[in-house]
Design a protein around this nucleic acid. Structure first.
Lengths: 357, 357
DNA sequence: GGCCGGAATGTGAACGTTCACAATTCGGAT
DNA sequence: ATCCGAATTGTGAACGTTCACATTCCGGCC
């Protein structure tokens, strides 16, 4: 013990100090020592294993409390090969729909003690960003991936995901066999269009979302179907990018077309733009033109005028998505498609068409 | 080797199979074997350690590509004691500000190859939710915590966080010595109020946010300071909860008060509600009453009328917050407060007061 | 009173990395 | 030729859990 030169022993001290400079968090072993049991018993208590004597359990719990012990999720994930983390493949935009869906997922995950890792795909730079996104997800060893994004961008990404990983798409239908949770966009759009026709409009115009978003397509189909049912020819569609700005531009074009009395807009943000454009053109809503949106964002009720729209329960989609994902993970078989129904909310922006002179 | 009974060896086979039922991801050892080097050399290549011969590096990289190898973040985090994860303590609400700040953090984190774990505090059930939130953060062994939430709720949580953990507050100032990134709300509010006074309004009313949000307080102070500077007495304030609905209610009350010609509303969503209420009361904006908001959400430009407001660059706050956090983590000293400046955006909702008869 | 079986506990080896240090190789200067 | 020191590579032990299995304890039964 005494045969080492002093400087050498000094080094040891320095190193030891550097290692555990701060007391750091207590680990399972510390708890075990304090409670006078083995680490395995501590583990059993944590995981609620039945075969632990009550007295022992108490001692361990007390020690845990005393040391403010927290199990280390990293170590646990490594040993158990379950990270308790779900990856979300999102889209880099401030859209009401996707972001509230994310919130729903987030809430549900928190309840289930799962963590969420969000990775976003940027619109441009598709190839690089997809690689990196998939890479991150794979490295984090997520237990599953929930996709909230237009298929065009995400389809690539999904292909590259490690195989065997559960994948769930929200609001989209990829060709692959993949579970899906969706709002019934088609019927929502029908509802909206039908509402306008029922009010007496000769036809209904449509401002659609970007064609690479499945939602946009389905809403368009629903609109068209409602017109077909009524035996009304479909006017040409205008297309926006979901933003209020693009809605405004479409609205301006619409304002220049004579005879337009009703518009079904594919989301509320664009509908706001349309209202703005019509107001600017001194066209009265709903006196001269009726406008119906889609989503029912919280602000829609306070647009001027209050917007008639189709409510989607994004929060529910998110919750439901997470629940489904968890089912997929522990192998319960799940319905391959879950539908959430939208409802029509009638407010002040839709009314009967102006009397024809 | 042959001295074990057959059934025993059989058992082994079964277990082995169960263990590696799926080929699973390649691990470092597999790469090492394929490249004919030790696992440590592979590690060196991954981490860009300099002392690796070019030829060796190439062989390793090739093996990695061939096996589609991904380092396991869990194992890495465990060994290195750095999780490359930042915790975000958020607030469970669909507010424009916080959620775009989060988006900014998220974007910046992704660039830096950091993961984000979001934990939200729900408004009610404060005690329980705080415990759980802090617990999750601690278990995930985050390297730091960014707080985006009103101080009242978050203050508790912050206190319980493991000590030694870097904490950064966005848009808030806790008493503790804690780094902060803020938009200069005070001056933003002054700008807005001043703008209205400059237009000739005798005074400016204010609809404030909830009093436990620091932003709300600072905006109110800025408003009051501007009035003081002009030697104008401050009318009583109304208070909302950031939502369009609460803005609408405040707007209705305001509409009933004679002589109001200018209102500064603490955020755009409430301002929308105010516009709606005024429109309903057939009060012309900006003809009879001018309205100025705060935030400049993308929709504000398309309100009816287009909203004059104060722009905050939330995205920048988020980015800046993450950058600061990373600096804190690797010990660079950082300014204890970083300010981002807001700018006034004048649109159609503000104008000169109506001529007095 | 010994023995049996289940409950309760302990032991050592994973999990997939990085760290600390030891061993080997290599190019040149002696 | 020989040896030195730096560059390169390898070895074994962490990191903090859980898993598989071994061991001990204990009550009751023949």
């Amino acid at each position: 013990m005494q045969d080492r030169p002093d400087y050498d022993r000094g080094m040891d001290r320095v190193k030891a100090t550097a290692r555990e400079s701060v007391p750091g968090r207590a680990v399972m072993h510390d708890v075990a020592r304090l409670a006078g049991v083995s680490h395995q018993t501590v583990s059993r208590v944590i995981n609620g294993h039945p075969n632990v004597r009550d007295a022992t359990r108490e001692r361990v719990l007390k020690a845990m409390r005393q040391l403010d012990y927290r199990p280390n999720a990293l170590a646990r994930g490594l040993a158990t090969r379950r990270s308790r983390t779900i990856g979300v493949l999102g889209f880099d935009a401030e859209l009401y729909g996707p972001s509230s869906t994310l919130l729903g997922i987030q809430r549900a995950a928190q309840e289930q003690q799962y963590a969420i890792t969000v990775v976003t795909l940027s619109e441009k730079d598709t190839t690089g960003s997809v690689d990196r996104a998939v890479g991150m997800l794979a490295e984090q060893s997520v237990e599953g991936v929930i996709v909230i994004a237009p298929s065009s961008a995400a389809a690539h990404a999904v292909r590259d995901l490690p195989r065997g990983l559960p994948v769930l798409a929200l609001e989209a239908s990829f060709g692959r066999d993949m579970r899906v949770v969706v709002v019934d966009q088609y019927n929502g759009a029908r509802l909206a269009t039908r509402h306008l026709l029922d009010l007496g409009h000769r036809t209904v115009w449509h401002i659609a979302g970007p064609s690479d978003w499945p939602e946009a397509l389905q809403r368009m189909e629903g609109w068209r179907a409602a017109l077909d049912d009524a035996g009304v020819p479909a006017p040409p569609t205008l297309t926006g990018d979901w933003s209020a700005r693009s809605g405004y531009e479409a609205g301006r074009r619409l304002a220049a077309i004579p005879g337009v009395t009703a518009v079904f807009v594919a989301n509320d943000q664009m509908a706001l733009g349309v209202l703005h454009a019509l107001n600017e053109a001194e066209i009265d809503v709903p006196g001269q033109v009726s406008v119906v949106g889609f989503d029912d964002m919280p602000e829609a009720e306070y647009f001027v005028p209050a917007l008639t729209t189709v409510r989607q329960d994004f929060n529910e989609v998110g919750r439901c998505g997470l629940r489904t994902m968890l089912d997929m993970i522990d192998g319960s078989d799940v319905a391959s498609e879950t539908r959430v129904s939208p409802t029509l909310i009638v407010r002040a922006s839709s009314d009967r068409p102006p009397a024809v002179d």
